[in-house]
Amino acid sequence: MAMPLFIFAATACRVLEDHRWDPIDSLKEILEHQHENLQLSGTYLPILKRILMDPSPQRQNKLVQTFRQMVGVIVVLESPLSITSLSKLIDIEERNVRIILDLLHSVLNIPHDTSKPVRLFHLSFRDFLLDPATKTDFSVMIDSQQGLQENICELSSYGTSSDQIEAQKRDVRISAELRYSTRYWVDHLHQGTVVLSDHDKIHGFLKKHFLHWLELMSILGYLPEALDKINALQTMVQLSIIISR
C-alpha cells in the first residue's frame, strides 16, 4: 500500500501511535481501503471518518462544518498560521479549533505553543482533499439505505413545510455526511477540473436523484442555493456535436 508513496507508511505509523485509538482497530480501518483506486484513500480516509464517529447527529453536523471551515483554510493557505490566528481568521472559538485539530495529529504538525503555525505533515494531504476524484465520490448520496431517496423524512403529505418536520426525524433520516454532500457536492465539482458529458457518472446520478436532491435541499433550507448550483453544473457541460456527412 505504501508503493509508490512512502508517506503512507509514515502516516500509518502516526495513526498507530495515537494513544486515543486502539492500534489494532486503526490497522483494520487502514487495511479496509487497501484495494481503493485512489492511492491516498488508505492513508487519509480512516482518519477523516473518525470525525464522524460521535453518536450525536447534532454534534456530527457541527464537527463536519467546523472541519470544513478550518481544514479547508489550512490546506489552501499560502503560508501556515497559528491556532490563535486560525481562530480569528475563520471566526471560530479557539477551543473548538483545538477539538478538531486534536483529531488530526496524524496529518498535521500541531505545536503546543498556540502562537506557532500549524503545518501539514505532508502535502499529499492537501492533494487528497483537493483531488477531483475524491470530491466526486457520490457514495454517501447514492447509498441505498442512508442516501438520497423519495420522501426521505417519510412525510405524510408533500405539502408539509420544512419547519413542520420534527428535528428528531431529520437527525435520524439525514446524517451529517449526507447533509454535507447534498449541499456542497456541486461546489466541489466546480472547484475541480471536472468536465461533464452525456452518460457519465454525474449524468447518471442526476437522472436518478435530481428530484431527491432538490427535495432534501428544500428540507434543509438550502433550496435558494439550488439554482446557482444548477447553473454551475451547466458551465461544466461538454457539448457533444454530431456532424453527419
Rank of each mutant, 00 (worst) to 15 (best):
Q168R: 13
N109M: 08
I142L: 04
E150H: 15
Q60S: 10
Q149V: 12
D200Q: 03
L123M: 06
W185S: 02
V76P: 01
L5H: 11
L223Y: 11
T11Q: 02
A226W: 01
F67Q: 08
Q69R: 15
L123I: 09
A10I: 09
T11R: 00
V140T: 12
M236Y: 10
L155Q: 07
D143M: 04
C153F: 09
L123F: 14
Q238G: 01
S244Y: 09
Q58D: 03
F121V: 11
Q238C: 06
L220N: 06
V107D: 01
P23D: 01
Q65L: 07
K169M: 14
E93K: 11
T235W: 07
K207T: 11
K28Y: 02
R14W: 00
L211F: 11
G42W: 13
L104Q: 01
S197G: 13
I83Q: 08
L196N: 12
F128M: 03
S87R: 08
Q145D: 09
D131F: 15
L103Y: 05
L104A: 03
P57K: 10
L120Q: 07
R179K: 08
S197K: 01
Q34A: 09
H212Q: 04
R98F: 00
E32W: 13
P132R: 03
A9F: 00
V195W: 07
R59A: 01
